[in-house]
Design a protein around this nucleic acid. Structure first.
Length: 498
RNA sequence: GUCCCCUUCGUCUAGAGGCCUAGGACUCCAGGUUUUCAUCCUGGCAACAGGGGUUCGACUCCCCUAGGGGACGCCA
């Protein structure tokens, strides 16, 4: 059997290190077995998927030197490799399931589903569709369908017993069917959900091994069931551990930089990052720590994966990066510096900010230091000149930080609008409001324009600096609770609670 | 709340019943090299979650408890 693996990122945001992590293990495993590795774009969430995000993901994976044999950019015998271009395939398959009585039309409104789930939760049950639409009469079904009533397609799930499946690393896993929801397969907008699309595509693309995050274990019964309904051979399932924040929770942008762009921007080398990811949950048989994906593939074994969720440690990554950097000859070192940051693309973003403020080139470094390099380490005194009380400073940094965690569209105007409404909420003039933020981002009271700086730094770096500033200012547990409440009040005042 | 997964130094990990006085790496500390700093070198601190079994023997196998994590969407 030819081993075929895949990575199936969803283009809904910044390229995530978790994606690179899964891509690495899938690519390495395929290579170690002489198989193929496929890249597929899962853009079935029409509301959140963007072309820019897809582009960034491809760029990031290429930057990391991960190569795929088939994909949306290079094509292949099982295309198209973008799910939005495969809509009709899923619809046909959903129809087949309905014909075979494995799925049914559901007309329930989101409101009814919310109420139902709330009631179930209150009763201590696992929220699950109650099957209301499963028993519609043929005539009612026809008339509602003909009337064009909004509907979805749901899969049927056995009432009793449990689903048993094999995980390559964890052995037999049993999950009661009572825990498995009658999953929506086809959404109201005609797009499939992940569960339908992933099964159909993995089968059609002849994927033999699914290496994915352990967050999927609980939905594997749905997939196993679908393979059964379609009469297909299920692939080998292998759930890998999840990358963790320092507090052991699943890696999230709220607590840790997750964007590959971030690492690229702070000057982590692609070979160091990918090497580092390779030692998350796996190690070379001889415990050698410096290795490439190619070397990894030579010695790789699935069974060698350690299941405890590895904490992403920035310090060890930095050390590893230093090993690579110091091992270069000076010529390469120079090339890599230019490649990293001192290139025209980067300067093009910088020049509009600095040209009018510059008299001598020797002024330059002092202006852009915090954008190109690390911000000076902050101390509490740095915030003293803002003329604001400590409590207010903390509020400003905290609330903005929370807003930015949720922000999708990282644009200058968006950022300004958020700060404007926050300043208003704090009843401060915008210039006073921004003072602690200048310090937080640049380490100085005066720097290049704030919103341009935020755009240049990007989401992860900006969030990171705000988090660090908050730590320097010092927030007690009690205060943290109060801040959270205040921020909720701010959200409520906007009339858009979240 | 329900279900599922996991558990070796602070962190990444080695360890497939005796090789374990539990090894390596990062961090930290001490010393050395270096006009400073960094690099580099040497040394040190530091862990088998707890309790029961199984066994001549358990970090390794089984059970329970505890702790951590994940899932529970017309998101993936």
């Amino acid at each position: 059997m030819t081993v075929r693996t895949r990575i199936a990122p969803s283009p809904t945001g910044d390229p995530h290190v978790g994606t690179a992590y899964m891509a690495l293990f899938n690519a390495v495993y395929a290579r170690s077995q002489g198989g193929q590795f496929i890249l597929r774009i899962e853009d079935t969430d029409a509301a959140r998927s963007t072309a820019e995000s897809e582009q960034m993901i491809l760029d990031s994976l290429r930057w990391l030197n991960i190569e795929w044999d088939e994909g949306p950019d290079c094509g292949g015998p099982h295309g198209p490799y973008r799910q939005s271009a495969r809509k009709h395939i899923y619809q046909e398959h959903a129809l087949k399931l309905i014909e075979d009585q494995h799925a049914f039309y559901c007309f329930c409104s989101p409101e009814r589903l919310d109420q139902m789930r709330e009631a179930q939760r209150a009763a201590g049950e696992n929220p699950r569709y109650d099957g209301l639409c499963m028993h519609l009469s043929e005539s009612e079904l026809r008339s509602r369908l003909n009337a064009g009533e909004p509907h979805v397609v749901r899969m049927k799930v056995p009432e009793h017993g449990e689903c048993q499946f094999h995980d390559e690393l964890r052995g037999e896993i049993e999950i009661p069917w009572s825990q498995v929801d009658m999953q929506v397969l086809l959404k109201n907008d005609g797009f499939p959900t992940y569960h339908l699309a992933v099964v159909v595509d993995d089968h059609l693309m002849e994927i033999s091994h699914i290496l994915r995050g352990e967050e999927w274990i609980n939905s594997t019964p749905k997939h196993v069931l679908l393979y059964e309904y379609f009469g297909w051979q299920a692939p080998v399932f292998c759930h890998l551990p999840l990358l963790r924040n320092p507090d052991k929770s699943k890696l999230s942008k709220r607590k840790h930089p997750t964007s590959i762009n971030y690492y690229r921007q702070i000057g982590i080398l692609p070979e160091a990052l990918i090497n580092y990811l390779g030692m998350m949950g796996w190690s070379m048989p001889d415990e050698q720590e410096i290795f490439s994906p190619a070397q990894m593939a030579e010695r790789f074994e699935l069974k060698g994966i350690h299941l405890g969720g590895p904490v992403f440690d920035l310090e060890k990554l930095s050390w590893l990066n230093g090993q690579y950097l110091r091992g270069m000859d000076p010529e390469e070192f120079m090339d890599r510096i230019v490649e990293w940051g001192l290139n025209r693309d980067n300067l093009r973003r910088l020049v509009p900010l600095i040209q009018q403020r510059t008299e001598k080139f020797s002024d330059l470094v002092g202006q852009v230091d915090y954008l190109v390099g690390a911000r000076p380490v902050l101390s509490a005194e740095d915030f003293a000149d803002t003329g604001l009380e400590h409590e207010v400073q903390v509020q400003i940094v905290d609330h903005l930080s929370r807003e930015l965690d949720a922000l999708r569209d990282w644009q200058r105007d968006e950022l300004f609008e958020i700060c404007r409404s926050l300043a208003e909420w704090h009843q401060l003039k915008i210039r006073d409001y921004l003072k602690p933020l200048f310090v937080a981002l640049s380490g100085r009271a005066v720097s290049l324009p704030l919103f341009d700086s935020m755009v240049f730094l990007g989401p992860d770096l900006t969030r990171m600096r705000l988090r660090e500033a908050l730590a320097v200012l010092g927030v007690s547990k009690k205060q943290a609770k109060r801040l959270e409440k205040q921020h909720r009040e701010f959200r409520a005042s906007l009339g858009s609670p979240q």
